[in-house]
Amino acid sequence: MSQYLLSIYQPDGPVPDAEILKPIMRELGTLNEEMKAAGAWVFAAGLYPADTATVLRPQGDDVLITDGPFTEGKEHLGGFTVVDVDDLDAALGWARRLAKIVTLPVEVRPFQH
Rank of each mutant, 00 (worst) to 15 (best):
A45S: 11
R26N: 11
F70H: 13
G68D: 12
Q59H: 05
I8D: 07
Q10D: 12
T81V: 06
L98V: 09
A95W: 07
V102M: 03
V82I: 15
T30I: 08
F70P: 12
G39Y: 00
A18N: 14
L98K: 01
R109Q: 15
W41H: 01
W41G: 00
D67T: 08
P105Q: 04
G93M: 07
A53Q: 14
T52K: 12
G29P: 10
G73A: 15
R57S: 09
G46V: 06
S7K: 01
Y4H: 02
E33V: 05
V82K: 08
P16Q: 02
F70T: 10
L104M: 13
F43A: 10
D67Q: 09
E34R: 00
H76W: 15
P105H: 06
S7M: 15
H76Y: 14
L21H: 10
A53N: 15
V106N: 03
D61Y: 02
E19L: 11
T54A: 07
D87Q: 08
L21I: 13
Y9F: 15
D89C: 07
Q3C: 05
D12Y: 02
F111W: 12
A37W: 10
A38M: 02
D61K: 00
F70R: 08
L88K: 01
E72G: 09
F43E: 14
A44H: 00
L92W: 03
I65L: 11
V55D: 05
G79K: 00
P14F: 03
N32Q: 01
E33Y: 04
I20V: 15
G68F: 07
G93F: 03
A90E: 04
T71D: 01
L47I: 11
S7D: 10
G29V: 08
A50H: 14
P105K: 11
F80I: 06
W94C: 04
T66I: 10
A40E: 00
P110D: 09
D17E: 15
V63Y: 02
L31M: 02
L47W: 05
M25I: 13
D84R: 11
G46M: 00
A37L: 11
L104Y: 06
T103N: 14
Q59F: 04
G13E: 00
L28P: 01
D89N: 11
G39I: 00
V42F: 04
A50E: 14
I65W: 02
G29L: 09
A90L: 01
